[in-house]
Structure formats: structure tokens, C-alpha cells
Lab assay of single mutants.
Amino acid sequence: MALNTPQITPTKKITVRAIGEELPRGDYQRCPQCDMLFSLPEINSHQSAYCPRCQAKIRDGRDWSLTRLAAMAFTMLLLMPFAWGEPLLHIWLLGIRIDANVMQGIWQMTKQGDAITGSMVFFCVIGAPLILVTSIAYLWFGNRLGMNLRPVLLMLERLKEWVMLDIYLVGIGVASIKVQDYAHIQAGVGLFSFVALVILTTVTLSHLNVEELWERFYPQRPATRRDEKLRVCLGCHFTGYPDQRGRCPRCHIPLRLRRRHSLQKCWAALLASIVLLLPANLLPISIIYLNGGRQEDTILSGIMSLASSNIAVAGIVFIASILVPFTKVIVMFTLLLSIHFKCQQGLRTRILLLRMVTWIGRWSMLDLFVISLTMSLINRDQILAFTMGPAAFYFGAAVILTILAVEWLDSRLLWDAHESGNARFDD
């Protein structure tokens, strides 16, 4: 018995066209964080690309023209004298008006014999932002004059995390709450300039795509075929072959399989920071003279006294001054041990922890910024005066060393310790 099946006739004509040209192939790229070699397709503007294995951002879609970056830099340069030299806060102490600005706080630190601690604050609040705007201006002028731009481009990517104007702005709020127990506070004209400078700096850093600047100024022929001998440069993120001198053909720094002496430098910085954190938390970090009496505060006791007036601000200072430094030390110690013992479990967790400490590390400088600003506000000789204690130097040095330890660690070593050939990683 035959089955009668109805015929289905399409209502619209289906047209099949042959592909007349070869589909576009992607360029081969190595991930600078996990060293995976993959094919990167062509990316349009405002599109980002991520590593298929570790999800690290390979290409950032946010990109401004150099002219727009230069305009932002010149605007920031105009704001800087007002943000640093004009009063941020006014207080009335014992019937006398006192003005506080950024430069005055750094000068008070240096004047009291601790120039190293003052230079830490100076670099993060004044030096690094000033280098940022002058570097962008150098790129703008240098591109037109045919100057060598490689050193500036190499420095810009590392400079971003040292620009800490946003953290200093939080420190202004913390210092205001600490001082309000002794005097009446009012915002100064410099505060508005400083807030504007923070906003412009944040926007500029978020749109400063150094890798795209490398592509514009020093374009290189990408690798179009897969080759395990391809290496990625950690300076400019170019994937290719080393030249005859073993250097990256684009930025001219040595092109090595792994960062040289990464573990040794990381261990040295980490152990030194552990040693410095002990006096930083045991010795007094601030000293207040009130009517001839002397009151010393460690980091913890200062947080407890701050909690009596504002528990939320005390929580912020606790996280930045105690929780973050010790968390960074514990995480980095764990990561280094996992590399030495070739741990194969929990790779995803370790990668996330490394990215976390990379982002939060700079916030530990908050305590030094609060001390710097408070020193310029309260300084009335023996009637009422505020000065920093010996722990300030140890704390600042420990924070900087932990930042350097994270920067010096080559994250690809975590993958080397893991089993080879993993296309995915999980716990």
C-alpha cells in the first residue's frame, strides 16, 4: 500500500549564491595573561575582544583620537594649579581661619623630617597626573615632529594605576569627618577644581587605549598563520617573532617567553612588605597634641575612634588600611606557593584573586592621604596640633611594595603550573 505524501511548494523562490571570495581570516594573537594562541577576527570600533580561555580583555573598544586626548590633557593642565594650590577646605580653629590644600599637606610631611613619605604622596597625587598630561601632550606634538614615541607609550600603561586623584578625593571626605570634632569646616574653591580634575582624569584614563596608539604610530604586520613560536610582548602586546637582537619589532624591548626574574622580584617585594606591615600596624601612625597632652593612634585605634562619629567612614578606612593590605599579602603568598608547588586545582579562583588584588591594591594609600591633609588643617603649635607617627613611612612603603609585587608577577606562570593543553579552566 503506497502512502500519498503531499508536496510542499515554497511560496518564495530560494536563491543560492556561491561564495565568490575567501572568507576573511583572523590574525593570530597570544593572550598576555595566559599565553593562549588564538585567531582574533577583525574588530570594529566600539567592540571589545576577550581571550577565549581566561576571559582577559585583549582589545578595548573604547578609543579616543589623539586630538581629543590632547584637549583633555590641556584642560587638566589648566585645572591643576587651582586643584593643588587653592584651598580645598576652610576650618575655623580657636577663632582663626585655616586653609588646607594639597601642596601644603605634602610640605608639612616633608617639613617634619619625613621627606620619603611626603614624596610618596607627591608622586601619586601630583607627579603621576602631571606625567600623564605631559605624556599625552608629548605624543600629540611628537607625532607631528617625527619624534620617538616608544618610551612614552611604554610608560603610559604602567602609569595608570599610580594616578590616585580619586583616592585622594575620598581622603578629603575622611579628613573632614575627623577634623569636624575640633573645628567648623567649609569647602574651599580649590575643592571644585579638584573634583573637576578627578572627573576629567577618570574619563581620560578610561578612554586612553595605549594598544590602539601603538597600532597608529607603529603598525606591524600581524601573524596570519598559526605558529607556536609566536611570542607576545608584555610592553606593547604585539604578537610576532623577535628581531635579530631578540627584541620586539614594535617597542624594541627584549621579547622573552616569560617575564625575567618574575618570581624572585615578586618574592622579594612580598617578604619586604610583610616585614614592614608589622611596625606599620604596631607603631603610632598619627599623633595629636591637645592642650599640651599627647595622644597617639595606631591604624586600628584611629579607626575605632573614627567609628564613634561615623561608622560608615570608619568601615571604608578599615577596608583600605587593614583589610586590603593583608588580603593582598595572603593572596600573593598563596599564588606564589601554588606556582612553586605546581598546583593544578582552583586555577579559576587564583586568576580571579590576582585580578582582584590588581584592582584594589592602590586604595591602601588612602590613610597616607588623610594624614597629609589633616596635617595641613590642624597645626596650632602646642594648643592643638596633628602630626604623623613613625608607622606612616612603614605603611606607605608596604603598600608600594605590594603594588610592585602584583605588577611583577607574570600571570602566565600560573598556567605553566597548571596542566598543559587546557582550553578551559575551572575549579
Rank of each mutant, 00 (worst) to 15 (best):
T334N: 11
G190N: 03
L413P: 07
T134Q: 08
N209A: 06
L37S: 12
D381Y: 10
L290C: 15
L37K: 12
V370P: 01
Y241L: 10
R258M: 08
A391C: 08
K342Y: 11
V232I: 05
S48G: 12
W162P: 01
Y394Q: 05
N209I: 05
K13A: 11
D381L: 02
Y168S: 09
S376R: 14
I287D: 03
G113P: 05
A137E: 03
N44T: 12
L413F: 10
V152H: 01
G240K: 05
P254Q: 13
G85Q: 13
T334Q: 10
S376Y: 04
V313D: 07
P151S: 05
L93S: 02
I378Q: 00
T298S: 07
V210T: 09
G95N: 06
L89W: 05
V189Y: 08
T239E: 00
Q264W: 02
E86R: 14
I316N: 07
W140D: 04
G293T: 06
L139E: 01
A183V: 03
M103S: 04
L145F: 11
W214Y: 06
P32G: 08
R17F: 09
G190A: 03
L347S: 13
L197T: 06
P41Q: 11
N143Q: 08
I285R: 00
S372Y: 02
S48C: 13
P129N: 06
A269Q: 02
A2L: 09
D243W: 02
C343K: 12
R97D: 02
D416F: 08
P81I: 08
P10N: 10
D114W: 08
N310H: 02
Y168F: 14
I400W: 04
D181Q: 03
F122A: 05
V329N: 13
Q7I: 10
G235P: 06
G146T: 10
G246A: 05
L139G: 02
P219C: 09
L271Y: 03
F395N: 02
T110A: 06
Y168I: 06
R245K: 08
R221T: 07
C236Y: 01
T224Q: 09
Q264G: 02
G118R: 11
A137N: 09
G113Y: 05
F38H: 08
R247N: 07
Q264F: 01
D181P: 01
V179Q: 02
L290Q: 01
C248V: 00
A223N: 09
L153Y: 03
S286W: 00
S286R: 00
M365S: 05
S420W: 09
L159S: 01
I136R: 02
I322Q: 07
C54M: 00
L213K: 15
T224A: 09
L94S: 01
V179F: 01
G396C: 02
Q108W: 03
L93C: 02
P41E: 10
R350W: 14
S193C: 02
F123W: 03
R68F: 15
L145T: 06
N143L: 14
F238H: 08
V210M: 14
L337E: 07
I400V: 07
S45T: 12
I287L: 06
I185F: 07
A223G: 12
E407L: 09
I91L: 05
L78D: 03
V195K: 03
L205S: 15
S135N: 06
L366D: 02
V125D: 07
M155A: 03
P242H: 06
L300F: 11
L283E: 06
L66T: 14
V195N: 08
S372P: 02
A137G: 09
T117Y: 01
Q345K: 13
Q220I: 08
L3H: 13
I58P: 01
P52E: 08
R30Q: 12
W84V: 07
A83K: 03
D60S: 10
A269P: 02
T117R: 02
G396E: 02
G142E: 00
G346D: 09
H340F: 11
